[in-house]
Write a protein that binds this DNA or RNA. Structure first.
Lengths: 157, 157
DNA sequence: GTCTATAGGGCGATAGAC
DNA sequence: GTCTATCGCCCTATAGAC
């Protein structure tokens, strides 16, 4: 409404109800986010660089993840039609990340799968930390810590 | 109201407004969560075991983190009195985790700090993934992936 | 396709009896 | 300290003019 400048009543000319508006908004958000991630994760660069690029991409940390935050929205949770695109987004994102990990030498399927879950969770949690601390750099610190251990830079002795 | 069996009107005898009820609820939740984490992270076990125990503690993943989810609640975000305990929770939790990482040999301050952010973010993101996928084991997979790389079990070549 | 006006329901809060 | 009743606001949705 703010961007288009139209009033609240006019919205109902384009969408029959809030539910359909939410569906459209989520579909656009998910498609956009997946396209961005796919671009980074399937570029021609070496697997290692693609992972780092995905993890360290600049993000508006204080805003939170536009998809991940939906998992804490009651309106979305209660509605399968809104829930499903969120599930698909994370399924596909994890699959994309797993495929990159799988390219690394000596990586079995379980290993790449678990690391993909960890990498995607790390980003989501980084958003949460940045918001909780009101500190955009929190996400960056979390990512740096993960990259440190990925680099084998002294994990546990 | 459900647990106590009292009606909505009676609530206002004990709390002047929704704000104070929220404050009390958040204070209890934060204190409880911090006490649990502190118990695990400052026990007598070796640092490595304390970290693993904190990370792998059984969690109700589908319910989400009772503190972390507040970062996506508009009512909390808009209110500094509600926001502050959430910030303190994560500040202290990260400090506790950092202290344990710092015990590991060859770990400088930046390294322990970044790993603490990563570990706490990983748990928060694991909750988000479990909720998004409606799959309690997603959090466990993320934790396992992180522990894999912490163990130096082949990060990046 | 846009607007204004308004209905209907839920929620936060208050009033006052017991 | 609990209850019922009710006010007032916001939000979703509808009606109908232009």
């Amino acid at each position: 409404m703010q961007v288009s400048g139209v009033g609240q009543g006019s919205l109902y000319h384009h969408f029959p109800a809030k539910h359909e508006l939410a569906q459209a908004a989520i579909a656009v958000t998910v498609a956009d986010a997946l396209a961005t991630a796919e671009g980074e994760l399937t570029s021609g660069s070496p697997a290692r660089e693609r992972l780092i690029q995905y993890l360290t991409r600049p993000r508006d940390a204080l805003a939170g993840c536009r998809v991940g935050r939906l998992t804490y929205e009651q309106y979305v949770i209660d509605d399968d039609a809104l829930n499903e695109p969120v599930r698909q987004y994370f399924r596909r994102l994890i699959a994309l990340v797993q495929d990159v990990f799988a390219e690394l030498p000596g990586m079995d399927e379980g290993g790449s799968r678990r690391r993909a879950y960890a990498a995607v969770a790390l980003i989501q949690g980084g958003y949460v930390l940045s918001r909780a601390l009101d500190e955009p750099a929190a996400l960056d610190s979390a990512v740096s810590g993960f990259v440190d251990v990925l680099n084998g830079d002294a994990g546990l002795p």
